[in-house]
Amino acid sequence: MDELILELKNEIIETLNLEDMQPDDIDTDAPLFGEGLGLDSIDALELIVLMEKNYGIKLRDASKGKEIFKSVRVMADYIEKNRTK
């Protein structure tokens, strides 16, 4: 799980162009949206694309994203249980 969390943090930094950020700067349990990383709605769409592209997870119901993107840990947990690649 720790390996996946680190991998995910690196992918988030690269995909969302979070320049100047290192994986350690992202709190594993902090909210990704709002107070945490301060991501916006376009970032949410990029994360949905990332899940499909890298892990084969198709998020049909966009409203589910609110739950899945609560934190990197929650996201990693969801990926571990649902990944097809």
Binding site: D43, E46, V49
Partner: peptide, 9 residues
Amino acid sequence: FFPSPALFV
């Protein structure tokens, strides 16, 4: 086929 929303903006 993974269209990027951030690029589309």
